[in-house]
Design a protein around this nucleic acid. Sequence first.
DNA 1: TGGAACCTATCTACCACTAGATAGATAGGT
DNA 2: ACCTATCTATCTAGTGGTAGATAGGTTCCA
Lengths: 184, 184
Amino acid sequence: MKETATQILDAAEAMMRDGGYHAFSFREIATKLSIKSASVHYHFTTKEALGNAVTQRYTNNFLAALGEPQTHSDPIDHYIDHYIALFRQSLEADGRPCLCGILASESGRLPESMRDTLKEFNSKNLTWLEGSLSNRQDWTNHHRQEMAHIAFSALEGAMIFASLNQEAGHMVRVGDRLKTLLAA
Amino acid sequence: MKETATQILDAAEAMMRDGGYHAFSFREIATKLSIKSASVHYHFTTKEALGNAVTQRYTNNFLAALGEPQTHSDPIDHYIDHYIALFRQSLEADGRPCLCGILASESGRLPESMRDTLKEFNSKNLTWLEGSLSNRQDWTNHHRQEMAHIAFSALEGAMIFASLNQEAGHMVRVGDRLKTLLAA
DNA sequence: TGGAACCTATCTACCACTAGATAGATAGGT
DNA sequence: ACCTATCTATCTAGTGGTAGATAGGTTCCA
């Protein structure tokens, strides 16, 4: 059996990816794990602390799965496939979109500390994407940056769209088309 | 002075665009308008009703501002500029992103009726975009559809990203680059 | 005088969070 | 080997506060 703290993180992540930070409660997590909400507070003192823990774990997992783009010299398709596959997996594994996209969209009512974590997720993703485009030497730095922004935005947007329609296919099509745009 | 019902819709829309459906309350709206929460219930019986009213008004305003793309024969830049300008305005007017993007991202915990309204917003936007691409006769229907999907997803994603960073510039850059991609 | 708009007062259910207790495991000293 | 102290993880019971919602009264204008 997994550690309780891990189970709490898992449950909170699932709920946050369903409806964001404001759509879950300690009680709901407790009920799901057949413990009391006080026990959830034992592991994570405040809701903000739990939210940050979930977001940080998600970010770390995501970045770890990305790896370092600079160390390879594969063709660009390889990176883009890899990147898109991660987003796709996130959605197809349990029908829930990327945590950080969801949280970013309610950033206006999020604790400051969580906004910082989200900004880090975004900037690290962009850095990775820009790095993976570095072997497109026919592009200027500025162009690479912009294309990275487009790719990231489009994937986040597509995932949200796909989750509303419960249709991972949309995500896949946008991803494929994006790949041809970036590798063309 | 505006009608109370309209003021309620305005306040609710602002709050929903800050943090989504779960991040505002009748009491909060009442306080902002210096009335009591019971009076808000007089105008909108349930939260779901208010949420739907806000979403439907937003959708209608947005679609009305879009107009009918088929009736013109302007170059493609015109449509895209027009479309992007709407998203941009939404963000720059009050620093808040598109309502429907935010709500879509918490669709997992939204009343069914609101999900339907959101799907309508999305499909009508895509129809409009596809229509505006119809004078790209060098593209197949399928290609036009995919490019419309990409454009829509990228703009929604970019807006969410921009709102997190309080930086409308990002939105603008993605929009411009997108335009060149569609008009190229 | 009747109805629209708003009120007071209240309800039930839930929220995040805390205090205090307890069972069970672990560790250290004698 | 036993005792003591501490730690972990959970509990019960409760805090003050807020959620959405409602019944019934007041005000005011046409």
